[in-house]
């Protein structure tokens, strides 16, 4: 995987919990352009461990002068966002991946309906730039608990096709009203909590939208959880996965190589066979089908965890 070493040019607080980081090439060289909805993976070294989180790019995809990401501080997360908030300063160098996109716009759409919940606004910020440049019709609905939490607010243009729904102010998002009456051939994109993604998919299905017109991205980083143990089938090696570590990170720390890309359970790259399982795999990915998850024969180490007596990986 191609890596870039970039300098943190500017850190801006967008809300009490969300900071924006602007990254530029140390020599001022242009960065690879990208497509709306793309993300980069940031390396966060701590001691001899490297934690990696993926963040959506929020800057103009056609502007190679710099990349911008917005990071929400999760005090109960594994520490990735805390690292970004407390350990990274302007002038520091960060190692990041080249942009990748698992949430691209379908440019066949007659119209794009974008629905964001909370920090789920981030992938849409680059998509808005792209839609404006391509002059494709869209509307954006952005739901947040309060104005002060709506970090994306400062980055959004004041335009009639951008709708804000602040629940504290009594303006709740009405999915039925949003989706009903959209022109045939519209596509809907949701990013936010699982509940919102499901609600949009259900509503769209009720209105007979084709499934190929319904897109979503869950923006979760790997969840923390109870520590657990795994066994590597080929070597018999036992590994302990710490509470704040993902299984993928534990494998990397033990030099058991596993392929990855998104580190968010969406790309399928880290799929790993399970050769023995006595217990319950806690699937947190969006890649395996419900049947595959139930069979407990595959696991996505970037996101998923385990509870039980023995988990043996086919590695």
């Amino acid at each position: 995987m191609k890596k870039l070493t970039l300098r943190v040019a500017e850190i801006t607080a967008l809300s009490p919990l969300v900071k924006r980081f602007r990254l530029i090439h140390p020599d001022g060289a242009p960065l690879p352009l990208f497509s709306g909805g793309a993300h980069i993976t940031v390396d966060m070294p701590e001691g001899d461990l490297i934690r990696r989180n993926s963040y959506s790019l929020v800057s103009n995809p056609y502007d190679g002068a710099g990349y911008e990401i917005a990071v929400r501080r999760e005090d109960r997360g594994r520490g990735g966002s805390l690292y970004m908030h407390t350990r990274v300063s302007e002038g520091d160098l960060l190692t990041v991946s080249a942009p990748k996109n698992l949430f691209q716009l379908d440019l066949r759409a007659r119209k794009h309906v974008l629905i964001a919940g909370g920090i789920g606004i981030t992938p849409f910020l680059s998509q808005l730039h792209q839609l404006d440049i391509l002059q494709q019709p869209y509307e954006l609905h952005y739901a947040a608990h309060s104005r002060s939490e709506a970090a994306g607010l400062t980055l959004l243009p004041d335009a009639p096709h951008i709708h804000l729904h602040i629940s504290e102010e009594g303006s709740r998002m009405d999915l039925g009203a949003i989706l009903d009456g959209q022109p045939l051939g519209s596509h809907v994109y949701t990013c936010g909590p699982d509940g919102l993604i499901r609600a949009v998919a259900d509503q769209a299905a009720r209105l007979n939208w084709p499934t190929s017109a319904i897109h979503s991205e869950a923006f979760t980083a790997p969840p923390p959880g109870e520590p657990f143990e795994v066994t590597i089938a080929s070597t018999g090696q036992h590994l302990r996965v710490g509470a704040d570590q993902s299984l993928l990170e534990a494998l990397e720390a033990a030099h058991v190589p596993v392929d990855y890309s998104c580190r968010g359970g969406a790309c399928g790259r880290c799929e790993t066979g399970v050769s023995a399982c006595n217990g319950q795999i806690l699937h947190h990915d969006h890649w395996l089908s419900p049947d595959e998850q139930a069979s407990q024969t595959k696991i996505m180490p970037c996101m998923s965890r385990f509870k039980g007596a023995r988990l043996e990986l086919d590695l």
């Binding site: 990208f34 990748k100 399928g268 790259r269």
Partner: peptide, 11 residues
């Protein structure tokens, strides 16, 4: 197909 879907920019 799996390989192609994983092809990334710059590589």
């Amino acid at each position: 197909l799996k390989f192609l879907l994983a092809v990334e920019q710059q590589q």
